[in-house]
Amino acid sequence: MVRLLRTTILIFGCLLILTGVVYPAFITLIGQIFFQNQANGSFVFTHHGVSQGSILIAQSFEQDHYFHGRPSLINTDNRAISIGRNLGQTNHVLLRDVIEKAKYLLVKNQGSSQPIPMDIVTVSGSNLDPHITPESARFQVPRIARSRQVSEDELLKLIEDNTIPRTFFILGEPRINVLQINLVLDQLYPIKP
């Protein structure tokens, strides 16, 4: 019995060091050498080297001149922890919330034509979804055009240029990265102070 315990502890120790220390250290080394940006969180920077956020993590946009992302339970100025809402399809809280969000969007986006895409009236799994569908981006065009004083056609063109296609034309869904397109917006059509 004592021998069995000794054997267990020794082999356990060997395998623990291999899988819990050597393996993650090796992966970190590879990541930091070959994929430095991704391994450190895929942050985007200004010309002065100031971080403006991670391209993978949604940030909240509320001002009229930006594309808005999907609704989220995570408040602004909070730690970007992931939480799911987990409401069921028969839950009245969910159903009422979807309708409220849709009404709010119609008020905010006067001049936009229905239908409203589902993704901008529901929360995502992580509440950190950095993407919206191209339809949702097009829905917001009249509002942004008004507030930036640009033509709607230019914005539609911008959406088309910034649509991320399916990987290999097969995998996933076409989508817009909200932070990415807003960075381009600021660059092409800066807001005059």
Binding site: R70, G84, R85, N86, L87, Q89, L94, V98, I99, A102, K103, L106, Q114, P115, I116, P117, M118, D119, V121, T122, V123, S124, G125, S126, D129, H131, I132, T133, E135, G172, E173, R175
Partner: peptide, 19 residues
């Protein structure tokens, strides 16, 4: 009842990139 038209599948709890 609220004169709203919604389009697309049920996206509650789903991520746009996966659909």
């Amino acid at each position: 009842e609220n004169n709203i038209i919604l389009t697309g599948i049920n996206m509650e709890g789903k991520e746009v990139r996966f659909g």
